[in-house]
Write a protein that binds this DNA or RNA. Structure first.
Lengths: 135, 135
DNA sequence: TTTCGATATATATTATTAAATACAACGATC
DNA sequence: GATCGTTGTATTTAATAATATATATCGAAA
């Protein structure tokens, strides 16, 4: 059946991989998973890394610096997580020796753990799908 | 072991769900998957929907309108997909009866099919994970 | 040859996000 | 009480993305 509409530039060249220039591989399956709370993102990859850095450095500002992230942004993420969570994931201190600091609560530790588990299983999923992917 | 650092505002109220205000459910697992080509995104959810609309309407501009998307943006997505793909997913015509139009190639049809399959299995994955999710 | 609506593209404008900067408040320690 | 580096926040600036506008091009059909 011929289409009644006019000229379609059908560009149907090199479906057969005769020359070496066929884009054969080069495709990649990517994805993201995150947990959403009542009013926005609760925990995703970047937030999980941030939590780990806070645990490592004991400071939001240092954690932010280590990730090349502005303090403000890091603080907003922490604030968002704390508001979204049932109980705060990070507890902070202002003043005192060293000016203050931040540390994870046990809920914070658990949240990281839980997310990395999810993340690992997701990577596995992508790997499997990638193997069956036909493009 | 008591921490030597100063005052942590530990905010440890209502871990026990005594009052009714506990944010018990309200969490949702979300995610995205997409296929990346040699130089950027190749196919994701929005692009798959766009392809379907193009099939439905036979026109990029009408497809864009139907999605509340600017023609320019839609055109850029189509252009990107065509460049990224081994062979074009959309073929276009300018001029002629009705001014021109656009339609899917067989590769375009196959790409949609393939992506929706992936998407469905991904939704299944999220559903399973959601059931085991502890926050 | 003129008309038509859509493609293909450039340019300008607006809106949204992200980043940078600044600074008051804090409280244990010296 | 002075000091310290951090938290917590506001304000400003820069960067990016999204949208709007404009227009040249196309070719079948009238």
């Amino acid at each position: 059946m011929k289409d009644s509409r006019p000229n379609f530039n059908s560009d149907d060249k090199d479906k057969s991989p005769a020359d070496g220039s066929v884009k054969d591989g080069g495709y990649e399956l990517k994805g993201r998973v995150w947990i959403e709370g009542p009013s926005g993102t609760f925990l995703g990859y970047g937030r999980a890394v941030l939590l780990e850095r806070i645990r490592e450095y004991g400071s939001i500002s240092e954690a932010a610096r280590s990730m090349g992230m502005s303090y403000r942004h890091a603080w907003e993420l922490v604030d968002s997580m704390n508001r979204e969570a049932k109980a705060p994931l990070v507890e902070t201190a202002t003043g005192g020796k060293g000016g203050g600091g931040a540390r994870l609560t046990s809920d914070g530790e658990a949240a990281i753990e839980s997310f990395w588990g999810l993340h690992a299983r997701f990577k596995e999923f992508l790997k499997n799908e990638m193997e069956n992917l036909i493009i």
